[in-house]
Design a binder for these strands. Structure first.
Lengths: 251, 251
DNA sequence: AATTATTGTCTTTTTTTTAGACAATAATGA
DNA sequence: TCATTATTGTCTAAAAAAAAGACAATAATT
């Protein structure tokens, strides 16, 4: 079995995805863990087929590595420094885990192909963490959510890619209403505020935040949510438009 | 002479640059015109050398095609749809101008290389139009500024690339002070206002605009500028920090 | 029925933005 | 020389928006 059909792909170009989720006041990143590589994680990434668009490639890679489909995706930056893919780096990472190539079923031709310099196109995805059931691909031994403040060791420049994705997300949150892609179908105002406070890392006043969001006229008020707590039950809200505001423009 | 050293470049990846300048209330784009291609312009573009970073490649391409050096550059989007580089498109463009390949000194191997699918990384540059003296490269027959509202016919998806660059520039203008890269060393407040009004395509009130800009505390007031007009002479201002705010982060 | 912990909403205060006003001034020309 | 003209620089007033304060409503609990 040949795991890498090199001839089907564009050479020296990869896509890396940062998948964001929100749960319990934590912004989390979904990270599959490749088999055989001990204590090193990598972003879910892959290559671009000759006959598929960039956006389609990103969606396919996400589905293959995590099982996630139909989500908000945004291209945010290309990473193309020389150091990021210096021959040494890849060699160091992989050679320090002897046998990885064989176990992954890679030929020496494959390894040579992989060790060339790569330019990587960064995408970030926003998903409802409750809705997603990560699937573990054949390549991986696990696929789990990690608090962005406590990421496991990441290979290559993937930690930098995550941080740039976060920068971009923060910037976008003030322009578009993409944040709601991180929330479930219905939610309380407190959950929205928690999300904004967590992502932007700054506090809001409850009364003013509520006014700000409601004035946007994008939420629909549903019935109350009785949590059993000894206090007034909050209303549930729903996003008026279906979420996935932009999605990938399939380019 | 072989004009295209294919083996030195990353395959199927190009860089396209949108060079913005500002003059007489017009936002302009610098477009070199390739020899032999009649009535079709293309963005200054090129390929990435195996041993240079993405940012360096963009700077080199700009210098080679236009003679421009040391400028503000910003990567804004990757274009990777299938249609943009469908075999037909390139063929149509070039075949409709018989002899171009020969005159450019391209071998049939070169042509095959060029006709593959390409992913293009878009950069935009902001330059002081007064300072720049465009050089015409060997490839080109001219290199001139065009009002963005009256661009000549552009090949492939280059018109779309220009528009996306403009979108990105508009967004950025509200966040960073990059606009001053489009102005000369010293300028009047009216020129700054003209620039903002032109780029953002909306009017500002003179008194409030002046206050807004001065409150930023980024301008230094110089001597007055006597134009010979029958009215009060405006002050000249200078940007406190050297311009080129971000430049290419050489990645 | 009083207590507690929130929630929803209203009012007041403060800050920012927008609009209005006007003096200053560099030529022009009677 | 001295109004006139066209702008410019800056001030104040009005309007709008944001931030802060206040409090009643309410779902359990005691």
């Amino acid at each position: 079995m040949n795991i890498l059909n090199k001839e089907d792909y564009i050479e020296q170009v990869s896509i890396d995805c940062v998948i964001f989720g929100f749960y319990e006041r934590q912004l989390r990143v979904l990270l599959p863990k490749i088999k055989f590589l001990k204590n090193i994680w990598t972003l879910p990434g892959g290559f671009i087929l000759q006959n598929e668009s960039l956006g389609h490639a990103a969606l396919r890679i996400l589905a293959e590595r995590t099982g996630i489909r139909d989500i908000y995706l945004e291209q945010f930056q290309v990473f193309g420094s020389l150091e990021r893919s210096s021959p040494g780096l890849m060699r160091d990472v992989l050679n320090s885990h002897k046998g990885v190539f064989d176990e992954l079923g890679l030929t020496s031709e494959d390894v040579k192909w992989l060790q060339r310099r790569f330019i990587s196109i960064g995408y970030y995805a926003l998903v409802d963490i409750h809705k997603v059931v990560p699937e573990i691909s054949e390549l991986d031994e696990s696929c789990e959510w990690y608090d962005i403040k406590e990421l496991p060791p990441l290979a290559f420049d993937h930690a930098e890619i995550v941080m740039k994705a976060l920068d971009s997300l923060r910037l976008m949150l003030n322009h578009k209403l993409i944040g709601f892609n991180l929330l479930p179908e219905t939610f309380t105002m407190k959950e929205v505020q928690d999300l904004y406070e967590t992502v932007l890392d700054k506090p809001f006043r409850r009364n003013n935040f509520q006014k700000m969001i409601l004035d946007l006229d994008i939420l629909e008020r549903m019935e109350k949510k009785f949590t059993g707590a000894a206090n007034k039950a909050p209303y549930l809200y729903r996003f008026k438009n279906k979420a996935i505001e932009a999605g990938v423009s399939i380019n």
